[in-house]
Amino acid sequence: MGASGSGKTTVLTLIGCLRDVQAGSVKLLGQELNGASEDVLVQCRRRLGFIFQAHNLHESLTAIQNVRMGLEVHGATAMRRWREACTHMLAMLGLGERMEYLPGNLSGGQKQRVAVARALVGNPDVIFADEPTAALDKDSGHEVVSLLKRLGRERGTTTLMVTHDNRILEMADRIITMEDGRIAGDQQF
């Protein structure tokens, strides 16, 4: 966590392979990202799961099709049992009844849960979440984060979350505080 402009998002985009590393060193799952080619970055991104402030679902795709997009990127092997995987994921997030809905017909919390399903369906090594609760009310925000935490624990996935929502901080295992582009605090619970 940290104040606006402290560099949280920049760090996230750098580790998330979404921005070129210009100086210094960033290591993700053992891979040096400074000077990595576009192909390497694309490969690295596939090992990650992203959850954004806005849900960023594709409006023309149904809930299950959106989740499928998170799986399709891993190629034919991952797609062999895509329907079971996607259905299971959505059911776990309490969306078993809404799989064929377009995002336009889902509530904000439901859309964010579809986005979580899309991020988790590919069994990522790390999940990056950038203020995933900012667009949600207190209850649905809490619900989404606790789902994320529970599923992450079951699968042994690390979740790196940027937030300045104090209600969520109490669920964290480790809190890194940033100030003016530098790490100012690191608490482990």
Binding site: L18, F50, N56, V73
Partner: peptide, 15 residues
Amino acid sequence: DHLKEYATFKAIGYP
């Protein structure tokens, strides 16, 4: 109109 969706797909790892 779909730049945001495409950017998301890019982040997921689509080439």
